[in-house]
């Protein structure tokens, strides 16, 4: 028996990286999965793969910064599978530039996707979940950058700080309204993803050298893999975590302990 049997999950940014790992794991654990992304080709590949493995999935084209994409995307999921139980607001972008060189356009774009995108997701997620009578869970992808400063990621860090705080507001709002919706945030650090590859490019390094440099800073001595974060999402998506809400889950190989 799967740990997410009978649940319908929507995961944003699920074509690649951590979102993809969560989509695959959720499907394996019995959830019907909506793979949401702006990258249609890669997203559909993930869907095909899940189906080949005997899982259930659909692709949803969704730019998290566009309100109309959320209404249409959530509608599609509810129309296809009848309900929504789990939402993983995973989609996010980064730009690595020195603080003083960060342009307003860069700041706005990061905020639009990472912070506004999560706000819209939570809003339309709650709307879709609140009356289905079942236990529901929203998982927001924050980052250790919400807690500590990193080099050249001012906008990114600020956007993730917004995600952590928004998560607590949403958790309490759901409790106050009597909804069976839990809202938590997950704060990864140093994971082998396409985003890490982009960071390497922006720092002018090879991916190998960049990851090796980052690895050296990790007490645990290895870079995290997307599946490490996917398992955290799985715990929070399942009813195993039925008394957990408003909490932050740091998965960072020990970075914040130091």
């Amino acid at each position: 028996m799967g740990r997410l049997d009978g649940k319908v999950a929507l995961i944003t940014g699920a074509a690649m990286g951590i979102g993809e790992a969560s989509a695959r794991l959720f499907a394996k654990e019995g959830a019907k999965v909506a793979v949401a992304d702006i990258n249609e080709a890669k997203g559909k590949e993930v869907v095909e793969d899940i189906r080949k493995g005997g899982g259930e999935a659909i692709f949803v084209k969704l730019d998290v910064s566009k309100e109309s994409d959320w209404t249409a995307g959530v509608n599609k999921v509810v129309k296809t599978y009848g309900k929504l139980n789990v939402l993983v607001n995973n989609a996010g972008i980064i730009v690595c530039v020195p603080f003083e060189e960060t342009t307003l356009e860069q700041w706005n774009r990061i905020m639009e996707v990472n912070a506004t995108g999560v706000f819209l997701g939570v809003k339309y997620g709650i709307k879709a979940m609140k009356d289905n009578g079942e236990l529901c869970s929203i998982i927001n992808r924050s980052s250790t950058a919400a807690k500590v400063a990193g080099k050249n990621i001012a906008a990114y860090g600020a956007s993730k700080g917004a995600v952590s705080t928004l998560t607590k507001q949403a958790a309490i709002a759901c409790c106050e309204a009597g909804y069976k919706i839990r809202v938590n945030s997950v704060l990864p650090c140093e994971v082998r993803t396409p985003m890490a590859e982009q960071e390497a490019r922006e720092f002018g390094m090879s991916v190998k050298d960049y990851l090796e440099l980052r690895r050296k800073g990790l007490p645990i001595g290895r870079i995290g893999e997307p599946i490490d974060i996917a398992y955290m999402d799985l715990y929070l998506a399942s009813d195993e975590s039925s008394w957990v809400t408003g909490s932050e889950f740091v998965i960072d190989g020990g970075v914040l302990a130091r």
Partner: peptide, 25 residues
Amino acid sequence: GQLVAFLASDESKYITGTPVIIDGG
């Protein structure tokens, strides 16, 4: 117990040095 089991398992092997809150909000 479910949270203990998660932290005791290999599913959480990239998590260390971290406090985790379970308090119903």
